[in-house]
Design a protein around this nucleic acid. Structure first.
Lengths: 181, 181
DNA sequence: TTTGCTCTTGAATGGCATACAAGATGACCG
DNA sequence: CGGTCATCTTGTATGCCATTCAAGAGCAAA
């Protein structure tokens, strides 16, 4: 009972930490946000964060999972839309976290936790895309390749600023080229 | 004359600095390479580097230009090859500097010099791709869009490890989809 | 009241990019 | 030859960073 209460408090506190960290990471960037800054914002000592997370990278992973689970809530709304609309949706979702996407890729080599998170995430996303494509009659081998391409296009559009029209044109072209007429 | 000699020494010294910096950046990564480390390797004081370059980012830009001009030497060998072969070549060239590509993207927001270099580089590459596509009868508007897509595919393949076969399949599919049959 | 767990902190460590002012070197000019 | 000036190098310092460690506070169970 008491043990249980403690567990609840832990979750509440973690949620508080992660939401503050998320806000700062998104506005100032990962490198632009020091553990000191996060702690100050929360009114705690900097090293308090290290009781909850072993490193800044692990805090980032927690924030990423948080962002992802929030996106998953909105996922059902587009499951029966077209491939193109699904990709446009993903693009809009990620645009909120643009900064973080680049950061993750930059830190892949240096952080094991981050690399594991990244790989798992890619597997998840690509499985979903492959499933969609297969439902449209694409062979598995081809769907696998196209899923990779689709991912690259979304990542590219995130990393480099382009107009809505350019997004539109690229996604349209991809959908047309990927699916049989 | 003497003034001239100094200028020569300057270039020589810069070349020495940049080749050492390049070697370390490529093997240890940008973040993994401290100015201190570069200086130690060269047998000079750390702040000596700041006489030649205003910041670590400017040193990175110099290294990037160095890498690029080395690649440009090898460019003529593939000017008359197919689009697919050109992209495969670019991929091979960049693989040497994989680490740096991600670093550049990660630091775009924080470093003006780097962003300028990056934007200029993209304009250069995309102009070249557009030119190639137009020579194959693609309209300018379409070529512009395809150049962006091609760039994203190369960047994606660089950032994420894939087998030679996957590279091959993706590039082949892109060439087929981009060019009229 | 004592034991032990959970959480927080003060104080420190070693590293980092970078700034500044003082020196060394060597070329030119009188 | 002596002095002046630009070029290059360095010693030293600053303020930041992520992270560590040992000491404490608060509170539950025994």
């Amino acid at each position: 009972m008491a043990k249980n209460k403690r567990d609840i408090d832990l979750k509440v506190k973690q949620d508080e930490l992660e939401s503050t960290a998320a806000r700062l990471f998104l506005s100032l960037g990962y490198d632009g946000t020091s553990m000191n800054r996060i702690a100050r914002e929360l009114g705690v000592a900097p090293n308090t964060l290290y009781w909850y997370y072993a490193s800044k990278d692990e805090l980032l992973v927690a924030v990423l999972n948080r962002q992802m689970s929030q996106a998953l809530v909105r996922l059902p709304a587009i499951v029966d839309k077209s491939l193109k609309e699904k990709m446009a949706w993903a693009l809009r979702e990620f645009e909120q976290s643009r900064e973080l996407v680049t950061t993750v890729h930059a830190r892949l080599e240096q952080s094991t936790v981050l690399r594991e998170w990244h790989d798992q995430f890619h597997r998840f996303v690509e499985a979903a895309v492959i499933h969609t494509l297969q439902a449209d009659g694409v062979t598995q081998e081809r769907a696998t390749m196209l899923a990779t391409v689709g991912t690259f296009l979304v990542e590219g559009l995130l990393a480099h600023p382009h107009s809505k029209r350019q997004h539109e044109a690229i996604l349209q072209w991809f959908a047309d080229s990927a699916l049989p007429a």
